[in-house]
Simulated assay, not measured.
Amino acid sequence: MDSGIRAIVDAVEEARRQLRENALPKARDSSREKVPEKEEAALMGALAGLMEAFVELARAASDRMAPGDSSEAYIKVVRRLRDQPRFLREDAAAIEKRVGAAE
């Protein structure tokens, strides 16, 4: 792969590995205390940022694919995912509002 795709695939695989090795064990650790409400929005915002990166990557990839089915597949991914970051940011804002109102 000399089109630069190898670097993209490697970066995505590294991100996935980091999430699985570092974040998921902490999320699954049932012996830890519950997440304080004021920290919930930070996690939701981080998920929104990650989803935004997915959408940006799919959009950029669609521009580089040969015309036809491959390009259309990436465009479909963008359509399916593009609203998710906004929903996550709205959820984060709702959490912040709820926590702020409780203080």
Rank of each mutant, 00 (worst) to 15 (best):
D2V: 03
D2R: 04
S3F: 14
G4D: 01
I5W: 11
I5A: 10
R6A: 12
R6H: 05
R6W: 03
A7C: 00
V9C: 04
D10Y: 11
A11P: 02
A11N: 08
V12K: 01
E13M: 12
E13P: 02
E14N: 13
A15Y: 09
R17K: 12
Q18M: 02
L19C: 06
L19M: 05
R20D: 13
R20P: 00
E21M: 04
N22W: 07
A23E: 05
A23D: 03
L24I: 11
P25N: 04
P25I: 08
K26M: 11
A27E: 09
A27S: 10
R28S: 13
S31W: 05
E33N: 08
K34A: 14
K34E: 07
K34C: 04
K34D: 11
V35A: 12
P36E: 10
P36V: 11
E37Q: 09
E37F: 13
K38Q: 11
E39N: 11
E39R: 08
M44Q: 13
M44Y: 10
G45N: 11
A46R: 06
L47K: 00
L47H: 02
L47R: 00
L47Y: 03
A48M: 05
G49Y: 11
L50E: 02
L50P: 00
L50N: 01
M51E: 13
M51S: 14
E52I: 01
E52Y: 10
A53I: 01
A53M: 06
A53T: 06
F54I: 01
F54Q: 01
V55A: 10
V55D: 08
V55N: 06
E56A: 15
E56D: 15
E56H: 11
L57Y: 03
A58T: 02
A58L: 03
A58Q: 01
R59M: 02
A60R: 07
A60P: 00
A60W: 01
A61P: 00
A61S: 10
A61V: 05
D63I: 00
D63R: 09
R64T: 09
R64D: 03
M65G: 01
M65Y: 12
P67R: 02
G68V: 02
D69L: 12
D69C: 04
D69V: 14
S70G: 14
S71R: 15
S71L: 04
S71Q: 15
A73S: 07
Y74S: 00
I75M: 05
K76R: 13
V78H: 11
V78P: 05
R79D: 15
R82V: 15
R82K: 15
P85R: 05
R86N: 08
R86H: 12
R86Q: 12
F87R: 12
R89Y: 04
E90S: 11
E90A: 14
A92K: 06
A92G: 08
A93I: 04
A93V: 05
A93H: 06
I95A: 13
E96C: 06
E96R: 14
K97L: 07
R98F: 14
R98Q: 10
V99R: 01
V99K: 00
G100E: 02
A101M: 03
A101G: 09
A101W: 01
A102S: 14
A102Q: 04
A102R: 08
E103M: 14
E103K: 15
